[in-house]
């Protein structure tokens, strides 16, 4: 379990268009680059931002990660407030 590598994934996705493209097209291949366990990979692949934040991931990253995928901010807030999106 590594908050550090989770933050690295989200930082890399927020700062590189090439990373965003690869993650969008083949998330498993992209996530294979990182020192994440299987559970952590699922959290990222499925945009489970609440659980990422619960593991200590900086919420500036979780928010940016959500928005870079074109997902609505209103859904993000519902998830972070533990309401259904």
């Amino acid at each position: 379990m590594s908050r550090n590598s989770l933050e690295k994934v989200l930082y890399d996705l927020s700062t590189s268009g090439a990373n965003k493209k690869l993650f969008a097209s083949d998330p498993d291949k992209f996530l294979g680059r990182y020192q994440l366990d299987a559970e952590e990979k699922v959290l990222v692949r499925d945009y489970r931002v609440r659980e990422l934040a619960d593991r200590g991931v900086n919420t500036m990253l979780t928010w940016g990660f959500w928005l870079q995928a074109g997902k609505p901010n209103s859904d993000y807030m519902k998830i972070m407030k533990r309401e259904e999106a």
Binding site: T59, M60, W63
Partner: peptide, 8 residues
């Protein structure tokens, strides 16, 4: 609050 449940 940036990115957390209290944003706003």
């Amino acid at each position: 609050h940036v990115g957390n449940e209290r944003m706003g």
